[in-house]
Design a protein around this nucleic acid. Structure first.
Lengths: 264, 264
DNA sequence: CGTACCAATCTGGTAATACCAGAAAGCGAC
DNA sequence: GTCGCTTTCTGGTATTACCAGATTGGTACG
């Protein structure tokens, strides 16, 4: 199983009324000026207000609770948590998943976070990589080249490569955090990685990174990764700005409802 | 109602049948040898099997879905996702929250992850800290000293200090990731931070860190943080080992049910 | 008056049941 | 065999009801 470790399917939160309710719930919280510690309306009221069942409300709240956006107190109510302090990483990732936009500041912070993870990860990867890790890197490289040759976007195999690097640290926490980053930026990456210039540059950089890891040279690898991330973040920022400009009214991140047979 | 500082209330996932079901569900997945991509039994079967309602099953699955442990495919089934690749950071944090044990390997990886976040964070903090950030650091220091003076555990204010450092980066992603780390280790930290030696050492180290941040000296701060983390991780590892040995009995703080080891 | 106590009424937590629509499997007709 | 129907799965949603803490309001008592 050398293929890049990737889920067969799309992201998770897009289905059903419960997710739709979350999307409507967040602005509702905003316009009500609810602050951390405040209580949300009762489940029954919310159900009535949004025209759904209590079961739907409870499912939505369960998800928000899992992401530490909200806290349930039995027989008392549902309370908003202090977002910045207790929200989970995925509570932000979810924003993208639900079609809510990032602002530029958040985008930069995400880039910074990703850079931190990956520059540290590659050093560990140089030391810990196994043959299997290297095979996975090569598989991603092949996938990139193949897709590029067909003129397709290399967004996914490129992300897979980066994740494969992190995976070579064999540290689950690093891997999961990095994965969240790539989930959060999936849509915009699609756009960035259609530009042939970007693709060529990426593939070249990835090759350097891969070679450095194989060689086990920490300094080489870190240098290569830093260079790559620097350029990548630049492209990313540019793309984000243009996307931001075009993101006027309707959120373009909405065509996610794929229902295909899902070959697995 | 505005109590000074809200004792973070108990963590999130601990209430009710849905959470209990998650705890029973994970071992169930394990003993059934379900692998990524496999389908879970239908909701109705699970409900019958575990003696709860479908509503409970759905709530539990909603949480697992939010943490990207499983994936729902409408009118098809609930499928296990590739854990290492797609699970969220909080899917691991949850383990602690549900009373499931870490193994030593995971514990070390968590320490490593935390160290990466915080050593990078402190550099940014040196540059970006505002007066408000410094005030927060000082408040945490005071809380530490006060509690230590009363002979209480400084686990919470100590964690608050570390989080305040990360908060000074003004990077939400860093903060949330770091926060997840401290949530995951809450219980064990309580034990570690009752030892006066540890407390004294921590407070001293924190003071150094705080001063370096105020001074804005990146090199000093990084040095101080690295030293502190090194020692802290040592204490932590020791405590973990002893805790592991005594883990035959139930978790000391909670009277939560736990089943088999199931660490996969 | 003030206070202690009690009952109506909130809350979330859980249960039981039913129906819908897509998907898949069985199965008969050809 | 293959086509096409029907049955039987699946999750998705709605409805209703009851339980038990918590809150609240009022009332009876001191």
């Amino acid at each position: 199983m050398n293929s890049p470790i990737r889920p067969p399917a799309d992201a998770a939160l897009a289905h059903g009324e419960a997710s739709a309710l979350i999307v409507r719930l967040l602005p509702f919280i905003g316009e009500r000026r609810l602050e951390p510690g405040d209580r949300l309306p009762s489940e029954r009221l919310l159900a009535e207000r949004f025209g759904v069942t209590r079961a739907i409300v409870r499912e939505a709240i369960a998800k928000l609770e899992a992401m530490r956006v909200v806290e349930r107190r039995p027989r008392s109510g549902v309370y908003l948590r202090a977002e910045s302090q207790v929200g989970s990483l995925d509570a932000i990732v979810m924003k993208a998943d639900l079609g809510l936009p990032f602002d530029l500041r958040e985008s930069d912070h995400l880039s910074e976070f990703r850079s931190i993870l990956e520059t540290q990860a590659i050093e560990l990867a140089c030391v810990r990589r196994t043959q299997e890790d290297i095979d996975r890197l090569d598989a991603c490289m092949s996938a990139c080249r193949e897709r590029f040759g067909r003129g397709e976007s290399i967004a996914q195999p490129s992300a897979d490569f980066h994740l494969a690097v992190v995976a070579a640290t064999h540290n689950q926490f690093l891997l999961r955090a990095a994965n969240s980053c790539y989930l959060a930026t999936r849509e915009l990456r699609e756009a960035v990685f259609t530009d042939p210039t970007v693709c060529r540059r990426s593939i070249r950089d990835h090759q350097k990174i891969r070679d450095a890891i194989v060689k086990g040279s920490v300094t080489l690898a870190r240098r290569a990764m830093k260079d790559h991330l620097h350029v990548a973040n630049h492209y990313w920022r540019t793309q984000f700005a243009t996307g931001e400009a075009a993101a006027g009214a309707a959120s373009p991140a909405k065509h996610r409802r794929r229902r295909g047979p899902m070959t697995r």
